[in-house]
Each structure stands twice: as structure tokens, then as C-alpha cells.
């Protein structure tokens, strides 16, 4: 087994996948913890859908899908941040906007013939296809996002836990919400490089949701979230090598089984549910 592991690690594309996967996992896990306590999981999902249009449209203009998705989800994220509270009350509007985004994305796919084969890569991830240049870009993006999050995290935690009190203490809720949505847009874009647009939810919500369910402190919760995300991505990529099944399947599968186990433990063993 160790021999096999060594063999996998001798391939460049496996090492690249592990590096890119780790970067996306770390950022997703930290941002995800805030997504869970702010209850904006839906926004993560929505940003990924909007990103599809960017990724497919990019090809038409000769831009890389990563850049196309990043650009459009940043704009969408900033808008969601600005309109924040009003969005919660307009499910239908959001649903319509998301569907039209996917629709336009499909049109872009058709217009750019020869690109259609890439559709499944965008939708379900293509972690073994990341180039060195992409890894460098992913590293920069995650470092910038984590850095920004460090600067804002104290205010963000306060505003997430007691928004009214935070406002009274002079914390700007709308500014924080916008900054956070922009960071979320970057995380969603990076996570979609690993598991694809349709499965982004697992990597952003999965590890953080499991960790938040188990740990009573902010720091322990965030650390556990990062640990779970890295473990899932690494084992997912290596299992994919061993089985030839897609890494997205393994990563979502591992996180789902973990989630189920934690739910069962919390509900029936620890009885932390009232």
C-alpha cells in the first residue's frame, strides 16, 4: 500500500491535485465556518451557479474558465452583500436569476463548439487537470482571501453572532456582509476547481458543518473544519488514483458519511438535540 502511495505521488498531476485541493480545502473550511454561523449556505450555492455562466462564457472570449468564473462570482457576491437582507425574502427572484444564469451558460457552451467536452469538468470538477500556472493563481487567491478574513474575522464573528449589538457598537453590518460575500465568491470559485460547480456545497459547508456540530469554541471549530476538509480532499484524491473513480465522488462521499456519523452521534448518543 505504501508502495502504491509512493507511485501515485511520483506523478506530477497527483501532486498538483493535492496542492490545489489543499489550498481550496483550507480556504473553504475557514470561510465555511462563517457560512454556517451566518446561515448563508444558500448564497454559496447561488454563487457557484452564477459562476457557471462565467466559466463557460470565458471560453468565448478566450479567457480561462477560472478567471471567468472568478470575475462573475465576485460581481455577484458583492451584489449579494449589498442587497443582503432583502435577498433572503425573495426566493423566487433568486431562483429566476440562477436559472437564467445556467441557461445563458448552456448557450455559451453551444456557441463555443469544441468546448462542450469541458462542461462536465466545470460541473463536476477536474482536479487532475490543474496546471502549474493555475496552482500559483490559486495560491495567491487563497492567501489574499485568508489574509483579508484575518483582518475582518473579529468583527465578522461578532456581527454573525449578535448583529444588533454589533451595529450598536459601531460595526458596519453592510460593509462586513459585502467583504464576506466577496471572500465567499473566491472560495466558491476555488472549491469548484476541485469538486466542480455542482458540488461546491460539500467543500464549503461539509467540513464546517460537521466541525461546528461537534466543537464548542470558535478556534477549535475552525481548526477541526480545516482538518476534516484536508482529510477528505487528500483521501478523495488518493482513492481516485487507486480506483479510477472521480475524486469528486470520493470527496462528497467521505464528507457525507462523516456528516451522517456525526448527526447520529449528536442525536442519539450525546443527545445534544433538544
Amino acid at each position: 500500500m505504501i508502495e502504491q502511495l509512493k507511485e501515485f505521488l511520483s506523478y506530477d498531476f497527483v501532486r498538483s491535485a493535492l496542492i490545489a485541493g489543499s489550498l481550496a480545502a483550507i480556504l473553504g473550511a475557514v470561510v465555511g465556518y462563517f457560512v454556517v454561523i451566518r446561515k448563508v449556505g444558500f448564497a454559496a450555492h447561488a454563487l457557484a451557479h452564477v459562476g457557471f455562466t462565467g466559466a463557460t462564457g470565458a471560453a468565448l472570449f478566450g479567457i480561462s474558465p477560472l478567471n471567468g468564473m472568478l470575475a462573475i462570482s465576485l460581481v455577484a457576491g458583492a451584489m449579494m452583500g449589498v442587497f443582503g437582507n432583502r435577498l433572503h425574502r425573495s426566493e423566487i427572484a433568486i431562483g429566476m436569476v440562477l436559472s437564467v444564469c445556467l441557461g445563458v451558460g448552456t448557450l455559451f457552451l453551444t456557441l463555443y463548439s469544441g468546448f462542450a467536452g469541458q462542461a462536465s469538468a466545470i460541473l463536476f470538477g477536474n482536479i487532475f487537470g490543474v496546471s502549474e500556472q493555475q496552482i500559483i493563481q490559486i495560491a495567491y487567491l487563497s492567501a489574499a482571501s485568508l489574509g483579508t478574513l484575518c483582518v475582518f474575522s473579529r468583527k465578522l464573528l461578532f456581527a454573525s453572532i449578535q448583529p444588533d449589538l454589533a451595529e450598536a457598537r459601531g460595526v458596519s453590518l453592510s460593509m462586513l456582509s459585502m467583504v464576506f460575500m466577496v471572500i465567499l465568491a473566491v472560495s466558491v470559485t476555488l472549491a469548484s476547481q476541485v469538486v466542480g460547480i455542482l458540488l461546491v456545497f460539500t467543500l464549503i459547508i461539509g467540513p464546517a458543518g460537521i466541525a461546528a456540530r461537534l466543537f464548542r469554541g470558535f478556534w477549535s471549530g475552525t481548526a477541526a473544519s480545516v482538518g476534516i476538509a484536508l482529510a477528505a480532499v487528500w483521501s478523495g484524491i488518493l482513492l481516485a488514483c487507486a480506483t479510477n473513480w472521480p475524486p469528486s465522488f470520493w470527496i462528497t462521499g467521505i464528507l457525507f458519511v462523516l456528516y451522517l456519523a456525526v448527526e447520529i452521534i449528536c442525536r442519539f448518543v450525546l443527545r445534544t438535540e433538544r
Partner: peptide
């Protein structure tokens, strides 16, 4: 979430500052 009561109070303490919580 399992966030404890103490963590909830700690999150508010000097929560208007920049940086890490």
C-alpha cells in the same frame, strides 16, 4: 452548532476590533 455560551459571550467581547477573534 455546538458553540458554547462562553464562546458566544467571548465573541462579543471587544468584537468591534480588527484582527483575529
Amino acid at each position: 452548532t455546538a458553540l458554547s455560551a462562553r464562546s458566544m459571550v467571548a465573541a462579543v467581547a471587544a468584537g468591534d476590533r480588527w484582527g483575529l477573534p
